[in-house]
């Protein structure tokens, strides 16, 4: 059985890049929280709307939050230079 992705975007966190700045949790508290080590983790992909999720990712000072378009599978943030 395949996972059905809901919404336009799926967000992922690169733990090694996270410095606990907490901008993602401030902007999208329904999606992100800080764990016991003050590193961001995802609590729900549906916690905030897609534009808020993208803004939260863009606000990360270390580009630790990746946004993937569910339909195309392409990474939309950070922008990958071609």
């Amino acid at each position: 059985m395949t996972d059905k992705k809901i919404g336009k975007y799926t967000v992922k966190i690169i733990r090694e890049k996270c410095i606990g700045a907490a901008s993602c949790t401030a902007i999208a508290p329904g999606v992100f929280e800080l764990d016991e080590e003050q590193i961001a983790r995802i609590i729900s992909q549906q916690g905030n709307d897609d534009e808020t999720k993208l803004l939260a990712a863009q606000s990360c000072p270390t580009a630790a939050v990746i946004v993937v378009d569910n339909e195309s599978g392409d990474q939309v943030w950070p922008i990958i230079s071609k």
Binding site: S23, S59, P61
Partner: peptide
């Protein structure tokens, strides 16, 4: 606390 600036038209930000 800090603020985040939009620094490019590609959506890049700096805090």
């Amino acid at each position: 606390q800090y603020v985040s600036f939009l620094v490019s038209d590609k959506g890049e930000r700096r805090s």
